[in-house]
């Protein structure tokens, strides 16, 4: 017996319309996979940032130590490996990571836009934190900051000390300008928020959070972000107030 309806043979009224889009089961299209790559790349950034902060603090040891440290980075691995090898590897890893991180961020952002084509007239927050809400715009600020920061301190292109200066010189010259310090401070605070939510979020995205750990994780994430950002903020302000010169 066929499935006849008198009005439209075969096609029945009220039947579920079926999936609007065919689900893609490839791993790269899974939102969860995207989140996991963000977490992994985010962790790479965090590790880098820890090391970078420790390196930066050498500024307190004076110009020579700091410049030597910069040179050390470039010579790392010599004589077994040619000069700049390790640094280049680090740079490549970071570049790939940031590209992946941005790809995933943009892709999820677009998915989220599709998911709420019409907004609410009234919408209140019940529990979401400021940090979690600012991940996307914060990320963009961070990206701009990184570009500028490299032009500033690595290449010296936008630094008052100029292209041919040594790192320590660029650092001190740059941070003597309060505007630059404020810009750094803003970016670092944005970074603090990004990391605050990022650390908790990455644990969750990689499936290692649970009810018991949830609180501890959040406390840790906040503490970690504060210490890290505090560490970074020391340098610009020390320069500004003449502790480092």
């Amino acid at each position: 017996m066929a499935t006849v309806t008198t009005q439209q043979a075969g096609q029945s009224a009220g039947a579920n319309p079926g999936p609007r889009r065919q689900p893609k089961t490839g791993r790269f299209s899974s939102s969860v996979f995207k989140k996991a790559t963000m977490a992994v790349t985010g962790i790479i950034f965090v590790l880098y940032l820890i090391a970078h902060m420790v390196g930066n603090l050498k500024a307190f040891a004076g110009a020579e130590t700091f410049n030597n440290y910069s040179e050390f980075l470039r010579e790392l691995g010599e004589p077994i490996l040619p000069r700049l090898t390790v640094l280049t590897i680090i740079r490549v890893v970071l570049l790939v990571a940031i590209a992946t991180h941005i790809w995933a961020a943009v892709s999820l952002w677009r998915q989220a836009k599709r998911a709420r084509p019409i907004g609410y007239v009234t919408k209140k927050r019940v529990q979401q934190s400021y940090a979690s809400r600012t991940m996307r715009w914060g990320g963009i600020i961070l990206f701009l900051f990184i570009v500028w920061h490299i032009l500033d301190l690595t290449l010296g292109a936008v630094n008052p000390a100029g292209r041919d200066s040594l790192p320590y010189g660029r650092l001190v010259e740059g941070f003597q300008n309060p505007v630059v310090v404020i810009w750094y401070a803003v970016a670092l605070i944005v970074l603090g928020f990004h990391i605050r939510h990022g650390v908790w979020s990455a644990t969750q995205s990689l499936g290692h959070s649970n009810k018991r750990r949830e609180r501890a994780l959040n406390v840790f994430a906040t503490a970690f972000a504060v210490v890290l950002i505090g560490g970074y903020l020391l340098i610009p302000f020390s320069v500004l107030f003449g502790i480092i010169d």
Binding site: R20, P23, K24, S29, S31, A115, Q127, Q128, S132
Partner: peptide, 16 residues
């Protein structure tokens, strides 16, 4: 996969 195909967003662990 089905959830992604249904025009839902991805989760960024916001907790709302």
């Amino acid at each position: 996969a089905q959830q992604d195909a249904e025009d839902f967003g991805g989760c960024t662990n916001i907790g709302e």
